[in-house]
Design a protein around this nucleic acid. Structure first.
Length: 300
DNA sequence: CACTTCCCCTGCAAGC
DNA sequence: TGCTTGCAGGGGAAGT
């Protein structure tokens, strides 16, 4: 296999729209309910807060609110502590009992499996409620996800470092932040301290729509391009939320349904195929260790 | 200080 | 067929 024709199996990272979809669908299922028991697996020492402590501290707590900040989910609890969740690359939050073909391995899918999800060896956290209703399960095959209990009055340095939320990014912010930066605009967009919530897919899609080549040094952006990039970012993120997120591989909403935004990807993982705008063959380049997809004619 | 590289981890698919 | 190898990537640490 050569270059562009090669199709790697890529995991989809939950970016801002996916986390927002999860947040909106999960909030009615979490807020107001009280944890009865919390289960963890022996394979979960990657948690920022030790599993044993999570089990002890969460039991009996009631969820007061659920919100998204960048790619983080924050569940406020009735003792003023906060449960912080990051889905990493393969993290999933699922409602106990949900059905989805996507949750099963290819062989099982082909067998027509569309059955209820049951906790498996990658299900690291199980939250059950005292009302006896469906639980919420955190599953993460690659363990890049993070779970932390933030104690009352404490803050987390991860959250303090985050830039403004990408859903409301302004041209002025991009302009000011980009001045003097020599890093590739693509790598710059992925910097959560500059802008919170943008990942590989939406960065590539926004750069295409703004006509900016991912390898361009951020500091070379013109004011006009910052305007177009800000508008493109807001548009692709808003549309991503509207369509329920991108389901390239691992993303499923808590109820097991797929998103549809992958049907609207114009460049992401489309290298080797013609550009939808001009017909030129789309390319893939690695920037800062991350693959970027772009049109050599439409993006300058 | 700015920027790059490495590492964590696992599933999948190419290649032998 | 079955085993080995290598790639993907968010984010933080370590290196240049």
């Amino acid at each position: 296999m050569i270059g562009a024709a090669r199709r790697w199996h890529n995991q989809l990272v939950p970016e801002l729209p996916e986390v927002e979809v999860i947040c909106r669908r999960l909030a009615p299922l979490l807020v107001g309910r009280r944890f009865s028991a919390v289960q963890t697996t022996a394979r979960s020492p990657f948690f920022l807060t030790a599993p044993a402590k999570l089990r002890r501290r969460l039991a009996g707590r009631q969820v007061v609110f659920l919100l998204r900040r960048g790619k983080y989910l924050l569940a406020g609890l009735d003792d003023q502590s906060t449960l912080l969740l990051h889905l990493g690359m393969t993290g999933q939050l699922l409602v106990g009992g949900c059905r989805s073909r996507r949750l099963w391995r290819a062989a099982e899918r082909e067998a027509g499996a569309d059955r209820e999800f049951r906790p498996d060896r990658h299900t690291h956290l199980q939250l059950w409620f005292e009302d006896g209703g469906p639980g919420v399960l955190f599953r993460d095959a690659r363990k890049f996800g993070r779970v932390k209990l933030i104690e009352p009055g404490e803050t987390d340095p991860r959250l303090l470092r985050l830039g403004p939320d990408a859903l409301e990014v302004s041209a002025d912010h991009l302009w000011q932040e980009s001045r003097g930066r020599r890093v590739a605009v693509k790598s710059w967009l992925l910097d959560q301290a500059m802008l919170a919530g943008v990942g590989n897919i939406y960065a590539d899609e926004a750069l295409f729509r703004a006509g900016v080549r991912p390898s361009r040094p951020a500091g070379r952006l013109r004011r006009r391009e910052c305007q177009e990039l800000a508008a493109a970012l807001r548009e692709v993120l808003r549309r991503g939320i509207e369509t329920g997120g991108s389901s390239v591989d691992d993303f499923v909403a808590p109820d097991g349904t797929d998103g549809r935004y992958q049907n609207e990807h114009l460049v992401y993982q489309r290298d080797g195929r013609p550009c939808s705008r001009c017909g030129r063959v789309l390319r893939r380049v690695v920037l800062g260790g991350r693959s970027s997809h772009y049109c050599p004619a439409c993006q300058r």
